[in-house]
Each structure stands twice: as structure tokens, then as C-alpha cells.
Design a protein around this nucleic acid. Structure first.
Lengths: 213, 213
DNA sequence: TTTGCACTCAGTGTATACAGAAACCGCCAA
DNA sequence: TTGGCGGTTTCTGTATACACTGAGTGCAAA
């Protein structure tokens, strides 16, 4: 793997996992020594992070990890609803019904996954990730897919703020199943509605746990 | 101005103005000599361009200018309609009515600008740009605004393909005026409808002139 | 005591040298 | 004639040295 790639992955993980907190200054020399690469590939990594919005250039004094406020989360979900509703509707028109039927079945069995001994919810998030991937492929619109990918980077970071309690995840799995069902049924409006519902519930849960802290 | 910024602007202009055609290979040494900067800032410029989708990394052999097919234009407008309709609706809810009333008036007078001796349509595009900026500001959603900005980079490039005939520009000015009017009237659904109409007409015109070539 | 200026230093921005990898060309063999 | 293999070459990827800018601090003067 290229050194710049390695540095990028490492820094992104550190930011998403909240090991590097908002406001932290990422000096080029400091980080290049920490990650064992030279300044040139590290600069490239910082450029990518800044372009994605995970860091911001603090004129002259390195880059700092961007903060995420409650207002940001609202904005993020506003865009997310716009993009994902459109994506779900398009997937319902263009997607492979059999694939989404299969995903629906697996999602209905997801409560079993959540109950299992998997602290990181690896299986569950993997399944949800497969639904995302399937939708991305079904919409066959690279620009929309790209916009959703760049959005998900921020969402993963926000997700870490919320308590991943089993109750919410079980409900979320059901909502995801409803989305998959609507797409499999080739019903764009229903897919949109199911997505809207899911996102509103996610946001409510997020805000509830966030304000609790 | 920083050398990397200078290189980025120069390359972006060259690509948008179709001086660097799709498929053109941008070698680091070659371009750094042409633009009078060293390879390091040029690499940063190429990274940004690739992140934005104007170029793609051609594994091992530099980066190449990306092509834009008719299918790409369809995808681009699919995303554009999604984002701009949402933006227009939000602007209608949150925007400053007086500002958009003013813009509407100016847009209704735009046919005068188009008739004037201005081969680059500088005044006209400036006015449309002010409407875009006003909407960006009104939505007060940095993520949505960012998504729209990255989209516009590609759109400017596509616009150069279409013949900027006075007839179409005059009609477009009227459509823009309708959008501004709907926002000023604080009517989200109307703003959305006006935007949908405008984008469909733009796309039709684009396709008509494109297939003519 | 406060304000302004200059000096210092840390850190980025740029250039360049070197290493490694991938593609192209030519040659040889089947 | 064509396919494969190896050398050469040119490119990117990385490291590092140097320059310049901007901020912080300390001292002096009002």
C-alpha cells in the first residue's frame, strides 16, 4: 500500500473513532513521525481529509479536526434525506428485485445478529453496508453515488456519538427491511417514504442520546 | 498566491474550457514545467482535480482528463435536480424575500444584457451566479451547499458544450426569474416546480445542441 | 504600566534528488 | 508471423533540504 494511502486511512480512522478530537491540531512533522511516513505523503493525506471536510486548514498553523455541532447533524441529515430518498426511489425503478428481496430476508433476521456476542456489531453493520452498496449499484448514477459516499464518511463519525443500544438497532433493522421490501416491490414512492421514516427515527434517536450526554 | 493554488486554477480552467481534452494525459514533469511550478505543488493540484472528478488516476501513467458522455450528462442532471429542487424549496422557507424580489426584477431585465455586446455573456452569467450565491446563502446548510458547488464545477464544463444562443439564454433568464419569484413568495413547492422546469429545459437544449455536433 | 516594534522560532510551502515500478520496445523462438 | 520475455526508459512515489511566512515573545520607550 502507498504511504499516502496508509496515512490517510490511519488519520481518517483516528478522526472517525474520536481518537483525534475536534480542534486537535495535526502538525505535518508531528503526524508524519507518528505514522512513520515522510511529510510529502502525509500532506496528500491531509489534503484529502480537508477536501472531505473532516479537517479544515487553519491558515498557516496546520490543519485542525473539524467540529460537529448539533446544527451540523441537522444539516447532514437534511442532505442525507434528500440524497437517500432519491436513491431509494431510483433503486426501486432500476434495481434487481431478487437481490433486494434477499436483503430484506436477511434484515428481518438481523435481530439475531444483534443479540450475538459482537460488541462492534460487525455483522449487523456489514449487512447494512451491503444494502447501501446494493442501492449504490442499483441507482447507476456515479455522481449521486459519489455524493452519498462523501456523506457517509461524516455519518459514520456521527454514528459513534450515539449509543448503539440493541433496541434501536433492532428497530433500525426493521426500517431497513422496509426499504429493501419497497425497492424489491419496485415502488419508488414507498421506498422514499420508508427512507424518510428511517432517517427521521435515526435522527431523533441520535439527538436524544446526544443531548443526554 | 500559493504555487499549488495557481497550478490548480490553471489546470481547472484548461479542463473546463476544453483546452485540455478528455483523455489527455497530464504528466507531472510535463505540466510542472508548463505551469512553472515544481512537482510537489502540482501533485497537490492533480489530487484536488481527481477528488473533484475532473481527472482520474490512470494507474502508473499519470492522470487523464475525464470524459463526459451523454449518459454522464443525464446522471449529472439527475443529481442536479435532486439538489437544486431541495435548495430552492429550502430557500423559499428560509431566504430573505426582499433579496430574491430584487433578483427577480434584474432577471426580468436580463434580455437587455444578452443583447449587449458581450461575447462571453459575462454580465448574464454574473447575474445567474448571484442567484446561485443567494440560494446557497439562504439554505444555510453547508453540506448541501458544498455538494452543489462540487456539482457546478462539472456543469460549467458541460455548459461550454452547448451553443449559448441568445434565444435559449433569454428563455433561461425567464425561468430563473420564476425561481426567484417563487422563493420571494415563500412558496417551496412552487420554487421546486420552477427549478424542475428550468432544469428539464436546460437538459433538453443541451442534448439537442450536443447531438447536432 | 502599556503599547509598539523587532527578533526569534516553529511550521508550512516548495524544490529537488533518489528509488521503485510499470510500460514500451526490440529480440528471439516457436 | 506472432507471442513471449527481458532490457531499457520514463514515469510516479517518497524523502529531505531549504526558504519564507506568520505568530509569539521580550524589550524598550512613552
Amino acid at each position: 500500500m502507498r504511504a499516502s494511502e496508509k496515512a490517510y486511512e490511519a488519520l481518517r480512522e483516528d478522526i472517525i473513532e474520536w481518537r483525534l478530537l475536534p480542534g486537535a491540531v495535526l502538525g505535518e512533522v508531528e503526524q508524519s513521525e507518528r505514522l512513520g511516513v515522510s511529510r510529502t505523503p502525509l500532506r496528500e493525506a491531509l489534503s484529502r481529509l480537508t477536501a472531505e471536510g473532516l479537517t479544515t486548514a487553519a491558515g498557516g498553523r496546520g490543519v485542525v479536526v473539524t467540529d460537529i455541532s448539533l446544527a451540523d447533524i441537522d444539516e447532514l441529515f437534511e442532505l442525507r434525506e434528500t440524497l437517500e430518498c432519491k436513491a431509494a426511489a431510483l433503486a426501486a425503478r432500476r434495481g434487481d428485485a431478487a437481490l433486494f428481496e434477499q436483503l430484506q430476508k436477511e434484515l428481518l433476521d438481523a435481530p439475531g445478529l444483534i443479540g450475538a456476542h459482537d460488541p462492534a456489531r460487525h455483522d449487523y453493520y456489514g449487512l447494512v453496508g451491503r444494502l447501501d452498496t446494493a442501492i449504490d449499484a442499483a441507482i447507476s448514477n456515479s455522481y449521486l453515488a459519489q455524493a452519498m459516499r462523501s456523506l457517509r464518511i461524516h455519518l459514520v463519525r456521527v454514528r459513534r456519538l450515539a449509543a448503539d443500544d440493541a433496541e434501536r438497532l433492532t428497530a433500525a433493522a426493521g426500517e431497513h427491511a422496509a426499504i429493501a421490501e419497497a425497492i424489491a416491490a419496485r415502488n419508488p414512492r414507498l421506498a422514499e417514504a420508508a427512507t424518510t421514516l428511517h432517517l427521521h427515527r435515526s435522527l431523533s434517536h441520535l439527538k436524544a442520546t446526544h443531548t443526554a450526554h
